Amino acid sequence: MNGFDHERWLTSMNELSAALTSGFREKFGYPPGKNEVTPAAGPLPEGAEDLPTPLVEFFRHVEEVSLPDLHTGVFITGARHTVSGRDGRQPVRIDGPEAVDVVTFAADGGGTLFALGLPDGAPVYRLPPSALDRAGVYDNHDSRAQVVAATLPEFLTGLHDFLAAEITRR
């Protein structure tokens, strides 16, 4: 996490989220959803310290990210949900041409998931809707999973830039 300022990212994301929703109802004819980055409040839940270091550091600053009106939506679940998803309800392993253990931490509104490779929390994988077995193994034999960022800070920076570009387009 060298050099990544979580607090500045959180503040900037909330400023951009406010700009995203300004005039939203008038432009689209319906009210915006809850678009915000919620700061962390209180200690990490049990089991969170076992997550990859970049994700632990993120959750020390951010509770969750909710951007339902950014494209198809982007949601970074809270630490508690991320830890509980390790029980196989979310992908815990990608199996295909290569096999890698992962921790799922985010989703878009269209069924795509985002996961960090283990044990170091890198890279960030994009997992389009696919078969997931009862043990949480994501079937990637068709090679649909893609690396979208080398690190979590790179992913977060990309999310920030995507939100800023969306505001410019509107």
Rank of each mutant, 00 (worst) to 15 (best):
M1E: 14
R169K: 15
A150T: 11
P153L: 04
A165C: 04
F4D: 05
V83Y: 06
H61Y: 02
V147W: 10
G121H: 08
F59N: 07
R80L: 15
E46N: 10
G109T: 07
L116V: 00
H160Q: 14
W9E: 03
G158T: 00
L116E: 03
P39R: 10
S22Y: 08
A18Y: 01
L118A: 12
V37C: 06
H71E: 15
T112E: 01
V102A: 10
R134C: 13
L55C: 05
R93C: 09
L51H: 08
V92M: 02
L67S: 02
V148P: 03
P31T: 14
K34I: 15
T72L: 15
I94R: 00
A48R: 08
L116P: 06
L67M: 11
P128T: 02
V100A: 15
R126C: 10
S143V: 12
N14M: 01
Y125P: 11
D161V: 10
E98W: 09
V100K: 11
G29C: 05
H160A: 10
G23I: 13
H61Q: 01
Y30G: 02
S84F: 12
R89N: 12
V102S: 06
I76N: 00
S17P: 02
E36P: 06
M1H: 12
G73R: 02
G96I: 05
A145T: 09
A150C: 06
D133F: 01
D142M: 13
G3V: 01
G158P: 13
F58H: 05
V65Y: 03
M1V: 14
A41E: 15
A122F: 11
A19V: 05
P123C: 11
L10I: 06
E166W: 11
R93T: 15
A165E: 15
G111A: 01
F4G: 06
G73S: 01
Y30K: 10
S12P: 00
A40G: 08
G158Y: 04
L16K: 03
G73E: 01
V92T: 06
L159K: 02
A131F: 15
L118Y: 01
T157S: 14
A122Q: 13
G3N: 05
P32S: 06
A48M: 03
L152M: 05
P31C: 10
E36A: 14
